[in-house]
């Protein structure tokens, strides 16, 4: 555990809390992509099946359970409890275009051709692109509420901080995993446009609005 890794994890927890609080306090999931949230639930389910096969630390297990529980909690709030507020007319990204290539890629490029390893690899690939339906939704409506922007910033920062963690671990521990690193770079790059808008607009008190 190093500072980048810890900050990355905390940023991820913060993103989850912001999202759940936004939905709960405003009794609305307007502006949130249910398709991205569905992909995240698939990601954590596929990745953390190792909860049953290997134990790393209490911290590791608690975080995994938290991420799985929060993703299903979000799904429940969006598709059941606050279903009426779900903006599905703007949430139209075809997720099969993300899921199917990730399945094929995970079968083709992995560390070991075993069920758990392939599921882990699939989850890493899918996570890297899971935010696309959400970003597509923001670009379609041309704006995002500030709270949604904070959520996206925290969620994007998490993998960016993991990149620093991997640089650190490469030098300090000679540990590296090309699959996670390449996917992490892709994931972070997808947020770059949003990061720019967040820093130049939202942090200056303006609403995130895309240029017409």
């Amino acid at each position: 555990m190093n500072i980048f890794r810890l900050l990355g994890d905390l940023s991820h927890v913060l993103a989850i809390l912001i999202l759940l609080l936004k939905i709960w306090k405003t009794r609305s999931c307007a502006g949130i992509s249910g398709r991205s949230q569905l992909l995240f639930a698939i990601v954590y389910t596929a990745r953390y099946l190792d909860l049953f096969t290997s134990f790393v630390s209490p911290y590791n297990s608690i975080m995994k359970i938290l991420f799985i529980a929060a993703s299903y909690g979000t799904i429940y709030l969006m598709f059941m409890k606050f279903k009426a507020t779900y903006d599905h007319n703007h949430d139209t990204f075809r997720i099969e275009f993300l899921v199917l290539p990730c399945i094929v890629l995970a079968l083709a490029v992995n560390h070991e051709f075993s069920p758990l390893e392939i599921l882990w690899t699939f989850s890493i690939y899918l996570e890297s692109v899971a935010i696309l339906p959400q970003l597509f939704m923001v670009s379609k409506t041309g704006e995002a509420e500030s709270i949604t922007s904070h959520y996206l910033f925290a969620l994007g920062s998490y993998r960016a901080l993991y990149l620093l963690n991997w640089v650190y671990r490469y030098y300090a521990e000679n540990h590296y995993d090309w699959i996670a690193i390449v996917a992490g770079i892709v994931q972070t790059v997808l947020y770059c446009d949003f990061f720019y808008l967040y820093i130049t607009k939202v942090l200056k008190g303006k609403k995130l609005q895309l240029p017409a």
């Binding site: 290997s54 790393v56 590791n60 070991e112």
Partner: peptide, 10 residues
């Protein structure tokens, strides 16, 4: 552990 190394990251 099944894999080649421990997946200690999240």
């Amino acid at each position: 552990l099944k894999g080649k190394y421990l997946k200690d990251e999240l």
